[in-house]
Write a protein that binds this DNA or RNA. Structure first.
Lengths: 206, 206
DNA sequence: TCCTTTTTGTGTTGATCGATACAGAAATAG
DNA sequence: CTATTTCTGTATCGATCAACACAAAAAGGA
């Protein structure tokens, strides 16, 4: 089943990856179509033919980021045979290793896009939902631990999840500011130092 | 000592406050001069006469934010007669109370501007320095505690400071996403749950 | 070969960007 | 009063914004 018409002269996925990294670095508003064309190695009609619009390209870039850069980290969370504590520690330590990587923009794209940039509120929702998803995943892992008897069901699991997601978000901000892997690993260990207290007999909030 | 020429027809500080809130909400790149003029209630020649340029106005807005919105929170940190632990807890709890305030944009302007937005690297530096200053303040408070004998001098005080600043940054991101005061207070308490472990006999790293 | 389909490159669209020129208005100084 | 100084409002500057028209180019189907 061959394709009709003139074949595309560039690798769509490679171009999307280049666009993703540019949006990741500069944010939505500060990135122009001309910037994108230069980074992707194509001209604007090709960009519009392949991706539709700047907004649509950004939405695809977020999906590309989640699938190719974010998902591997989350894999650490749901591995079987590990306690919730170990899973979350692994997730934070893996993040500490990759957030300051020099072969890509620092920090988490979804977290750091939390900020400022206006965005058509459709894109803004996409990002808010992405961050809410992080919270849901951690909470789900804690719920599973409660169901399996590792944690007490009377704990404020949502609050604990929010705390660890918050630490992860802080790690992203500091990675963007130049924190090293060792710096971020120390943050991860510090957060884990609260685990016993948070999951102990103490009631969540007073 | 009266002023020569026609007097300015608007309150410069009130206009700066309006500009600050707009930049705080939308970020630098997504905020246009037209947006600013509308929010400040002036026309563009008045804006340029009073503030010079968009970049200069943004730099002044950051200063206005730090002085009028951020400083009150930091006052909690250096109050006398309190332990470092209580000071940091107060700082986090005060932040939890004010970050989700509905009479202003959510989250910390300096933290949330960490992101994306290109900025002439001069403005970017301004923000990076602002965030570095937060780290320095917390670290200075811990150093003082070590000098006063509250904490052991062998601890990784910089790492502890980085952890609490990171939690604060995570609180800003979540405040922007709609977290409530109670949500943020729970995060603050969770972070404080690590205090004993972080400041105990345990060696900082490895 | 000729037709259809799709992409590519050139050139351009109206809108908006940040920033000003200029003239009139409103104050002080003499 | 007149002269000077400074701000306000209109109108606009060239540059850039996101997006596209159009024709040449490159493929398959007939």
């Amino acid at each position: 089943m061959a394709e009709r018409g003139r074949p595309r002269g560039f690798d769509r996925d490679a171009a999307l990856d280049a666009a993703t990294k540019l949006f990741w670095c500069k944010g939505y508003s500060a990135t122009s179509i001309a910037d994108l064309c230069a980074a992707m190695g194509i001209v604007s009609p090709s960009l519009y033919a392949a991706f539709g619009s700047k907004e649509a390209l950004y939405a695809e870039a977020i999906g590309h980021y989640v699938k190719n850069y974010d998902a591997p980290i989350w894999g650490r969370l749901d591995a079987t045979g590990k306690s919730a504590r170990t899973s979350i520690e692994d997730w934070l330590m893996a993040s500490a290793a990759i957030l300051p990587a020099t072969d890509r923009p620092g920090g988490c794209m979804v977290t750091l896009s939390a900020v400022g940039d206006d965005k058509t509120s459709e894109l803004c929702d996409l990002l808010v939902q992405g961050r809410a998803e992080s919270l849901r995943r951690i909470e789900a892992r804690l719920d599973r631990a409660a169901a399996e008897g590792e944690l007490s069901a009377t704990l404020d699991l949502k609050g604990i999840a929010r705390f660890y997601v918050g630490v992860h978000q802080g790690m992203s901000v500091q990675a963007r500011d130049g924190a090293t892997r060792a710096d971020l690993e120390a943050m991860a260990r510090s957060a884990m130092a609260a685990w016993d207290s948070l999951t102990g007999t103490k009631v969540s909030s007073s």
